[in-house]
Simulated assay, not measured.
Amino acid sequence: MDNLLDLSDRLYLDVADFAHSTPHWFQWLAEVWTELGLLLFGALFLAGWWRSRDRSGEAMALALLAPLATAFGYVVSEGLKSLIDEERPCRAVVGAPAPLVDCPVYGDWSFPSNHSAIAGAAALALALSWRGMAWLTVPMALLMAFSRVFVGVHYPHDVTAGLLLGALVAVLFMKAARRPTRSLVDTARSSRSSAVVWCAGRGPVAPAHAAAHASAYSARRPRARHGAH
């Protein structure tokens, strides 16, 4: 265990030295990405909900669960952080250069990384609810985790644990809550409240209903008049 922590210290120093050797614009991007990534994940949650309004109840249930699973991942991470009480590397590592951002105050502990837990949970939750999104969300999560080490406020083992923890919590949460949430979606879609139905979406149009709608439309169309022969 001590060897792993020593390795994490050395990796932290290597990343910190590399960060200080990069141009200022690159350092600024790393600082911004730490928070901007969270906003982009939020935008993807909204887009996932919107695209699921005319899809199956299962699709809508997963879209609704994705942000909830991410929030639950954060709660679990914060609970562990308060139990482990690991000091931030920007104060604990001897000889470390100054972090690119302000070192968090004493008592804001380091392990695991909450940002990384949120990123890991969001990446997996979106991948489960939106087929084909892993190619985007997983790199986003990895970059967010790396940025926390890059700016100097987390050890590599903090962000690794955060990513894995968030992803695991998200998968378990969505698996456990999928069926009851789908039942709620089906109930909401049959509600008499137009606002509730709008939020849950009407789901896919049934083939019979679509055929009846097409027949009614055809019946309302004026018939072409045939000319005299």
Results as ranks from 00 to 15, higher is better:
Pro99Glu: 11
Val75Pro: 00
Ala71Pro: 14
Trp109Leu: 10
Ala59Arg: 13
Val75Cys: 01
Val105Thr: 14
Gly73Met: 06
Asp108Ile: 03
Pro99Thr: 13
Asp102Tyr: 05
Pro104Ile: 00
Met60Ile: 01
Gly107Trp: 05
Asp108Phe: 06
Ser116His: 07
Thr70Met: 09
Val75Leu: 04
Asn114Arg: 04
Leu80Met: 14
Ala59Tyr: 06
Val75Ser: 07
Asp102Phe: 02
Ala63Gln: 06
Pro89Met: 05
Ala98Arg: 06
Pro97His: 08
Ser77Lys: 06
Val105Trp: 01
Ala63Trp: 04
Trp109Cys: 04
Leu83Ala: 15
Leu68Ala: 14
Cys90Arg: 12
Leu65Lys: 10
Pro112Gln: 14
Ala63Glu: 05
Pro104Gly: 10
Asp108Asn: 15
Glu58Gln: 11
Ala71Ile: 10
Leu80Glu: 05
Gly57Pro: 11
Val101His: 05
Ser113Glu: 12
Gly57Trp: 03
Cys103Glu: 08
Ser56Gln: 02
Ser113Val: 09
Val105Cys: 00
Val76Leu: 07
Pro67Glu: 02
Arg88Asn: 13
Ser113Phe: 07
Ala59Cys: 05
Val101Trp: 08
Glu58Gly: 03
Arg88Glu: 14
Gly95Thr: 01
Ile84Asp: 08
Val105Arg: 12
Met60Arg: 13
Ser56Ile: 02
Leu64Val: 10
Asp85Glu: 15
Pro89Thr: 12
Cys103Thr: 10
Val101Pro: 09
Pro89Asp: 15
Gly79Asp: 07
Tyr106Phe: 10
Lys81Trp: 01
Met60Gln: 11
Leu80Thr: 04
Leu83Trp: 15
Ala96Glu: 14
Leu68Ile: 03
Ile84His: 12
Lys81Pro: 01
Leu83Asp: 08
Leu64Arg: 14
Arg91Glu: 08
Glu87Ser: 14
Arg91Met: 04
Tyr106Met: 14
Pro97Val: 07
Arg55Tyr: 02
Pro99Ile: 12
Ile84Gly: 08
Gly79Tyr: 11
Arg55Phe: 02
Pro89Asn: 12
Leu64Pro: 12
Ala61Thr: 13
Asp85Gln: 15
Asp54Pro: 00
Ser77Arg: 06
Phe72Asp: 10
Pro97Gly: 13
Ala96Asn: 12
Thr70Tyr: 04
Gly107Met: 06
Val94Cys: 03
Glu78Asp: 14
Phe72Cys: 13
Pro112Thr: 15
Val75Lys: 05
Ser116Gln: 06
Ala96Ile: 10
Ser52Asp: 00
Asp54Gln: 11
Tyr106Gln: 15
Ser56Met: 02
Gly107Lys: 13
Trp109Gln: 08
Glu87Met: 09
Val76Thr: 10
Ala59Trp: 06
Leu80Asp: 04
Thr70Trp: 06
